[in-house]
Design a protein around this nucleic acid. Structure first.
Lengths: 139, 139
DNA sequence: CTTAACTCCTCCAGTGGCTGGAGGAGCAAG
DNA sequence: CTTGCTCCTCCAGCCACTGGAGGAGTTAAG
């Protein structure tokens, strides 16, 4: 099976330009070329790119994906490291959710208090102008 | 009151480099300069920068802040537009939280199922390799 | 008055993770 | 043979900064 970058793109949902970018940054290997100089991919490339795409969709950073790919290539190793990477990422996602939730409550309080009058008396503007108006001062 | 960019930075918690950046992109006005060519700020600048900083902390994009600042300068206008910007942003934050929460559950399921054996049998790697393993297929 | 330490100045490059365009060449169908 | 598509490389831009180089102004101590 020899497919073009366009076909690879269709099968994985990753843009051809992004595939070339992944090659540049070392996530994807440089594939063999046809006589005309075009990239020629096989099933292994499809699987690897699907892995990368899925990991990106789950929010893993490119560096983490590099580590995961390296581990994936060594199935005999204990998977403790994989676990560490995934848990680290989970903790980061938890942190992001927490921060966004706090922010959301600040925002919604702000919006609720807007009396729909003039800008001069708008609570949204007031709250933005004065951090002291916030319930949580941590942001 | 005439303060330097460093003092402005201290009072607002915004880096001096970032203040100059805000000037470049038109969020902050170009202030008067001293004889030696240094920027000289006053109380209005401090207030404006505090407003910007707070809005950024609440996740407003620079474009939205530009709009909010323009509205802030027109206290006689009805605050409907302010409301629209804030609600739009709130909706976006809600969307982000939703997506992150879905992602979090996928991640935590993945981590929970890891049997701490070899990479070859690791569920984390398997799930990443096969999108079909996910409960939510929307990401 | 000099010197050292500090802040400030401008300009430019880099971050992450792509995305898009210019300008040119390969390739399949009519 | 030509049309239209895909592909190639290289480079610039996105967002919102951040940091460094290299130079000049400023302040306090000696």
């Amino acid at each position: 099976m020899e497919i073009t970058i366009g076909e690879l793109s269709k099968r994985t949902g990753v843009l051809a330009t992004t595939v070339r970018y992944y090659e540049d940054v070392g996530l994807m290997p440089a594939p063999p070329r046809t006589a005309g100089g075009r990239r020629s991919y096989g099933t292994a490339h499809v699987a690897r790119l699907a892995f990368i795409r899925h990991a990106r969709q789950l929010g893993f950073e490119v560096d983490a994906i590099r580590e995961l790919l390296a581990l994936n290539a060594r199935p005999d190793l204990p998977c403790a490291e994989v676990d560490v990477i995934a848990r680290r990422h989970l903790a980061e996602v938890d942190g992001r959710i927490e921060r966004l939730t706090a922010l959301r409550s600040e925002l919604s309080r702000m919006v609720d208090e807007c009396g729909h009058g003039r800008v001069g008396e708008c609570r949204v503007i007031e709250v933005l102008s004065d951090h002291g108006e916030c319930l949580g001062h941590d942001h």
